[in-house]
């Protein structure tokens, strides 16, 4: 069986702000169809890692390759075509507050260089994906008229409306109550499994990773269902733990729980206790 295509590759990447290494020699490879859960405390460098992967931040050391193309040192305009294959949900959704929900979700379809959509198709596509995230009634509203959870769902819709091959989710459940957080995670899983999208999710909650690893969207029943824990499934979801910019763990969920690394063990234990 051939090895899956590499979609994202970090090779000794460091990002330095004011002399502090917010990413410190991080190396990993993300394969097509894989789900990668990046865990870590606040300030561990999770968001910086995602922004570096998308070329929004240039690394001070090392190389980043996205879809087999090295993006380190590329000009902003050269990055647009590569970014067209990637969707991203920002931490606070980052919706354009002067645009309606419809305009926000339509934005990548109408403006993204490298995305070609027939203008007649834009509205039906926007309506369909907003219905998918259970917000079909909010087209004319502005972001400030929605709750935090609803804004996050609009962000998920905007990240997926172009049907990207790779989607980054930056702390999709941060600051949300447990019920809303679980609803958001269901939508993330649904978007991932509907088109078999390669997914990278950053979170400080271990349970978000557990949901990603153990639940699948069943297109026939239209529901999120728990999967039997098998070796085959484990290869699709990998976990990484960042500590002060350093990658201290990379492996499966079982390996995470069995990790001898003191920081990882403490992180897992504290998360289990708080859950």
């Amino acid at each position: 069986m051939p090895a899956p295509e590499s979609i994202l590759r970090f090779d000794g990447v460091s990002v330095i702000y004011d002399g502090v290494r917010v990413l410190d020699h991080v190396s990993f490879t993300l394969a097509a169809g894989e789900t990668r859960v990046i865990l870590g405390a606040a300030g561990a460098g999770k968001t910086v890692l995602l922004k570096t992967a998308l070329g929004l931040i240039s690394p001070d050391e090392g190389r980043v390759s996205l879809f087999n193309q090295e993006i380190t040192g590329l000009r902003e305009r050269q990055l647009f075509a590569i970014r067209a294959q990637v969707g991203m949900l920002f931490q606070e959704s980052a919706l354009f507050d002067s645009l309606t929900i419809e305009e926000n979700v339509a934005y990548p379809l109408e403006n993204q260089i490298g995305v070609r959509v027939d203008p007649a198709e834009v509205l039906p596509r926007v309506e369909a994906i907003l219905k998918d995230v259970e917000l079909g009634h909010t087209l004319d509203k502005f972001p400030n008229e929605l709750s935090g959870g609803m804004r996050r769902r609009v962000g998920i819709a905007r990240a997926n409306v172009t049907y990207p091959k790779l989607v980054f989710y930056d702390s999709p459940t941060a600051g949300l109550d447990p019920i809303t957080a679980n609803n958001i995670m269901s939508l993330v899983i649904k978007q991932r499994d509907q088109r078999n999208t390669t997914t990278v999710i950053v979170s400080h909650r271990l349970q978000d990773g557990a949901l990603m690893a153990n639940y699948r969207f069943n297109s026939q029943s239209g529901k999120i269902e728990r999967q039997r824990h098998t070796g085959a499934l484990d290869t699709h979801t990998k976990f990484m733990v960042l500590q002060k910019g350093r990658l201290v763990f990379e492996g499966s969920e079982d390996e995470l729980h069995a990790s001898p690394d003191p920081y990882v063990a403490k992180f897992v234990l504290e998360q289990a206790q708080s859950a």
Partner: peptide, 18 residues
């Protein structure tokens, strides 16, 4: 400035707009 601190500028770049 508000767009910058709420990551809307980054979102714009991520969505392929200069």
């Amino acid at each position: 400035g508000s767009m910058k601190v709420t990551e809307q500028i980054d979102a714009m770049r991520a969505l392929g707009t200069d």
